Simulated assay, not measured.
Amino acid sequence: MTGAPMIDHAMDGTRVRTKPDFYEAVAEVMSFPDWFGHNLDALYDCLTDLSWLPPGKHVLVWFRPDVLADADPAGYRAVQGVLADAVADFTDPERGFSVVLIEP
């Protein structure tokens, strides 16, 4: 994917205190399709697909993940697991996917 554009999807995590908050925020910044099911399996499915987005290297930039980690530690670990799995399992030759966490 040499020369492919890098496309950042910046997510403000200051109001993400629950898994449903995360689903809403990530769906908005990644332009998830209407069929997104707002659960961990659907999150994985969307993050390993991204076919609705233009070709390029897509980067989810999550600002303030500590807010969810502090408010819902189990939810944060579950989301982190799905994000890690999605990055590891991503195979689209026209797109890339990575995650960057920005903490204060």
Rank of each mutant, 00 (worst) to 15 (best):
A27H: 02
A10K: 11
A88H: 14
N39V: 05
L43K: 06
D12K: 08
L68Y: 01
P54A: 14
Q80C: 12
I102E: 10
C46M: 15
G96M: 04
P20F: 01
G96Y: 06
R15D: 11
V16P: 04
H38S: 10
V26Y: 01
A10M: 00
I7W: 08
V61A: 11
L47N: 06
A88C: 09
L50K: 00
P55R: 09
R17M: 12
V79N: 04
P65G: 06
D41P: 00
F90E: 04
T18I: 04
V16F: 08
N39K: 07
E94L: 12
V99E: 07
A74E: 14
W35C: 03
A84Q: 13
A10R: 14
D41I: 09
P55H: 02
F90P: 05
D72K: 00
T91V: 13
P93H: 11
L101G: 00
W52M: 05
S98I: 02
S51V: 08
G37Q: 02
A69M: 14
D45S: 14
Y44I: 00
P65R: 11
P54C: 07
A69D: 07
P93L: 14
V87I: 12
A78Q: 10
V100D: 07
A42F: 09
V16G: 05
P55Y: 05
D8C: 03
D92E: 06
W62R: 03
T14R: 15
L43G: 00
V61N: 08
M1T: 13
F63V: 06
P54M: 11
D12E: 04
V61F: 11
P54Q: 11
T2V: 09
P5C: 11
G56Q: 05
V87T: 11
D85W: 10
K19P: 04
Y76L: 00
V26Q: 02
A88V: 07
S31Y: 12
A71P: 01
K57W: 10
L40I: 10
T91I: 12
L43C: 02
V29Y: 09
P104T: 12
P104Y: 10
R95T: 03
